[in-house]
Simulated assay, not measured.
Amino acid sequence: MNLQTLSERATKGEVRELELLSLEGGFYLARVRFDHGQFTLLDDTAKPLHLRSVNHLRELLQLVPPFPCVLVQHCVHDEMCGSRDGPVEPMRIPFSLAAPW
């Protein structure tokens, strides 16, 4: 899904949530959830769009109607040490597309 399609579907109120996934290497990927599936936000060459920060996402989507967003970050310490029993859930922090200042 590209930015144009995301904008069109957000205008129609179809976006349920955007997950901004924090990945190793200091970049983020956006995954958009609808009623019938999830899609990764793609750049102009149809490759996953690498984002630098929450503010970078806000800049890209400044003209798009707001929708729920969440920052998703896995705990590397738990993954490396494996000290907990059972699955380790990622940290999910809600945020707004509106500028914080």
Score class of each variant (00 low, 15 high):
Glu8Ser: 01
Ser53Met: 03
Arg92Leu: 09
His74Tyr: 02
Ser83His: 12
Ile93Lys: 09
Glu17Arg: 15
Glu89Cys: 12
Phe27Gln: 10
Cys75Gly: 12
Leu18Pro: 07
Glu59Asp: 15
Leu42Ala: 07
Val76Ala: 14
Met80Lys: 12
Gly86Met: 04
Val15His: 03
Cys69Gln: 01
Glu17Leu: 15
Pro87Glu: 13
Asn2Cys: 04
Leu57Arg: 02
Leu49Ile: 02
Gly82His: 00
Val54Gly: 04
His56Ser: 08
Leu49Arg: 02
Ser96Val: 02
Ala46Lys: 12
Lys47Val: 10
Val64Gln: 02
Glu17Val: 12
Ser83Thr: 10
Leu97Thr: 04
Ala99Phe: 12
Glu14Phe: 03
Glu79Cys: 11
Asn2Gln: 05
Thr40Glu: 08
Ser7Pro: 02
Met1Ala: 10
Asn55Trp: 01
Cys69Val: 01
Asp44Asn: 11
Ala30Thr: 04
Leu18Asp: 03
Leu42Asn: 06
Ala99Arg: 15
Arg58Ile: 02
His36Glu: 14
Arg33Lys: 13
Leu60His: 00
Leu41Ser: 05
Leu42Glu: 07
Ala10Phe: 00
Leu57Asn: 02
Ser53Ala: 03
Leu51Gln: 07
Val32His: 01
Leu3Thr: 03
Glu59Met: 15
Leu97Asp: 05
Leu51Ser: 07
Asn55Pro: 05
Asp35Arg: 12
His77Glu: 14
Gly86Cys: 07
Leu51Cys: 06
Gln4Phe: 06
Ala98Phe: 08
Leu29Asn: 14
Phe95His: 02
Val72Asn: 03
Val32Met: 05
Ala30Arg: 09
Leu49Ser: 04
Arg58His: 05
Lys47Cys: 12
Arg52Trp: 03
Leu61Pro: 01
Val54Thr: 05
Asn2Pro: 00
Leu20Arg: 08
Pro66Asn: 06
Pro65Cys: 02
Val54Phe: 05
Val88Ala: 13
Gln4Met: 08
Pro48Trp: 02
Val32Phe: 00
Phe95Glu: 06
Glu24Asn: 11
Pro87His: 14
Pro87Lys: 14
Gln4Arg: 09
Trp101Met: 11
Pro68Trp: 01
Met91Phe: 10
Pro94Gly: 07
Val32Gly: 05
Gln38Tyr: 07
Gln73Lys: 15
Ala99Gly: 09
His56Cys: 08
His56Met: 06
Cys75Met: 12
Val32Tyr: 04
Glu59Val: 15
Arg16Asn: 09
Thr5Arg: 07
Phe67Gln: 00
Cys81Val: 13
Glu89Met: 12
Met80Val: 15
Ala30Trp: 06
Leu29Arg: 15
Asn2Val: 03
Leu41Cys: 00
Glu14Asp: 11
Met1Cys: 08
Thr5Gln: 12
Met80Trp: 07
Cys69Ala: 05
His50Lys: 15
Val72Ile: 11
Leu20Gly: 09
Leu71Pro: 01
Pro68Asn: 04
Leu29Gly: 10
Pro68Gly: 05
Pro87Gly: 13
Glu14Gln: 13
Val64Asp: 04
Glu59Cys: 14
Arg92Ala: 11
Ala30Val: 07
